[in-house]
Amino acid sequence: MTHHTVEDVFAKLQKIFPDIKESEEKIKNYPTWSVSSGSLFKICETLKKESGFEYLDMVTAVDRHGKVNSAGYLTEPNPCVYSQNPSVVPSQSPAPGAGFFEIIIILTSFSMNQKLILVSRVDRTNPEAESLYPLFKSADWQEREVFDLFGIKFTGHPNLKKILTPDFIKGHPLRKDYVHKKDKFDY
């Protein structure tokens, strides 16, 4: 049942899920695997049941859309950040729909004393992923947070609604193309 190293687990998983591979860009000092969003749930299930990765550390997302849109902030972009490199134009915006979301999942196995990072790409136009809530309850609020701030829909989540931002803040603030509209508390 238990494997001694994370490489064994990888070799075993690759037989069942051929689309799993070592990620090109490693998250420093941790084994990082890139998986397809379709098989993410099944891989987590296998990891939990067969390899002892029973603890979900973190669920988050990254918006790979290009440069941050300065309209998401209430003032001009921080001059200290942008002025040092004049070639960077802060408001240049890539085409809408370009890029993708990355869902980052960190799992821990106490028996192997090992952390493992799974990276999964999600389409940016209609972002959807399978919820990990049936496997790990700790995904509950973290997925709601990702839904709130990025707008990624987790299918199978029992209570997917906004958690951090109030109802009158429209849009998903952590998306790079987020544009802040003045609401009743901005003057």
Partner: peptide, 20 residues
């Protein structure tokens, strides 16, 4: 490769603890 982080996520223990 910029002067500011592209993304910084904080894994906050109380956020996860409170869900229970």
């Amino acid at each position: 490769g910029e002067f500011s982080p592209y993304r910084m996520h904080i894994k906050a223990p109380t956020f996860i603890n409170t869900a229970i």
